[in-house]
């Protein structure tokens, strides 16, 4: 009996420690501060005409405790031009060009119209919104909470749109406190899995050629 009680006590203490650790890491912002951070992110987004970076994407599989890591290059240009160029573990390319999507894998090319494909339209909105930070003002689809995390601001986006809710339970955006651009974002799925996309070597407002977004 004593052993069982000890086990329960240890478990409770461990849980308390975890809660304290999480709380110590993030500090919720006051409404006024949250408003100020939103404004700065919005201002940064307005002045960001283009963005170029490398990315590392890690998908964490909760059930089997495994990871899938992909890497590549990322290009964004206002208003709605996006190029995800995967280089590892194999080449794969997605170009979002306004209302069109072009996907190229090893031997297949696929053209998709955003107007006719709701799923891709939502993916497009989420990716562009996450990169630009405009997802924070998408109150129709997400409930947003901002907190302070050392050298970053963390925006937790919980979907309120039923269609998005079916797949995603939360999107977390991490904004750099220096330039208010996105350092990384995490997409938590309802399955418990999550995908983390981290940017490195960011180049803001450098000359990204339009040809990068051309759809053949």
């Amino acid at each position: 009996m004593k052993t069982a009680e000890s086990l329960i006590l240890v478990t409770i203490l461990q849980c308390l420690c975890m809660v304290v650790q999480v709380q110590a890491q993030t500090k919720p912002l006051s409404p006024a501060d949250a408003l100020e951070v939103r404004k700065r992110i919005s201002d940064a987004s307005k002045t960001t005409g283009s963005l170029e970076a490398q990315f590392t994407q890690t998908k964490e599989l909760s059930v089997i405790k495994e990871k899938i890591v992909s890497k590549g290059n990322f290009y964004f240009k206002k208003e709605k031009l996006l190029r995800w160029e995967y280089t590892e573990p194999f080449p794969y390319l997605i170009i979002f060009n306004n209302d069109k999507i072009f996907v190229k894998d090893e031997d297949k090319e696929n053209h998709i119209s955003l107007q006719s494909n709701k799923v891709f339209r939502e993916v497009n909105n989420i990716l562009i919104g996450a990169v630009q930070g405009t997802l924070l003002s998408d109150t129709k689809n997400f409930e947003c909470n901002i907190s302070d995390l050392h050298d970053q601001y963390l925006a937790s986006m919980v979907p309120v749109n039923l269609r998005i809710k079916e797949t995603l339970s939360e999107i977390i955006l991490y904004f750099n406190k220096t330039d208010y651009t996105v350092d990384k974002f995490v997409m938590r799925e309802v399955s418990g899995d999550y995908t983390r996309i981290e940017f490195s070597g960011k180049k803001i407002n450098q000359n990204v050629p339009d040809a990068k977004f051309n759809i053949p």
Partner: peptide, 8 residues
Amino acid sequence: TFANEIGM
């Protein structure tokens, strides 16, 4: 486990 390239 099978996920698309973006991780979904």
